[in-house]
């Protein structure tokens, strides 16, 4: 990922900050230029809830190099209380502990580093409550 792209996405990755359509009230995350509900183009900033629940998940045994240390790791779709769904890693757990319906909270973590000398990318992941 290029540094400009990392930089452009930092606020939503760091703060889990989404948007709310000024026309129809649809809450969107990540942010978009056009509302997926009504086509509106004006938005207010909308913080996402800090907790959600696991809708579904998978255990990853062959992942990218930067996640080699974590294998096997959990990738899950999390539904927030406002209906927004987010795909992210569930950390600090064994795969056998993870179940659909379990509550998770979002935590601030390293997402990736571009090798020992590259830039480190930070953002949100999920942790079982």
């Amino acid at each position: 990922m290029s540094s400009p792209k990392i930089w452009r996405q930092r606020i939503e990755r760091y703060r889990l900050l989404g948007q709310k359509c000024k026309d129809c009230g649809k809450v969107l995350f990540p942010k978009r230029l056009v509302c997926s509900e009504c086509g509106g183009r004006e938005f207010d900033k909308e913080p996402m809830p800090e907790v959600g629940k696991i809708i579904t998940y998978t255990t990853v045994y062959f992942g990218p190099k930067f996640l080699e240390q974590d294998i096997p790791y959990i990738l899950a779709i999390i539904e927030l209380k406002n209906g927004v769904r987010i795909t992210t890693q569930v950390v600090d757990t064994e795969p056998k502990e993870v179940k659909a319906g379990k509550e998770v909270k979002f935590v601030f973590r390293k997402l990736k580093d571009e090798g020992k000398t590259g830039v480190i990318i930070y953002g949100y992941k999920a942790q079982l409550c």
Binding site: D70, V91, D92, V107, R109, I120, Y122
Partner: peptide, 12 residues
């Protein structure tokens, strides 16, 4: 954790 460092701990 493998994804924790001084920055992530500081944020939390």
């Amino acid at each position: 954790g493998t994804d924790e460092d001084t920055i992530t701990i500081s944020v939390e």
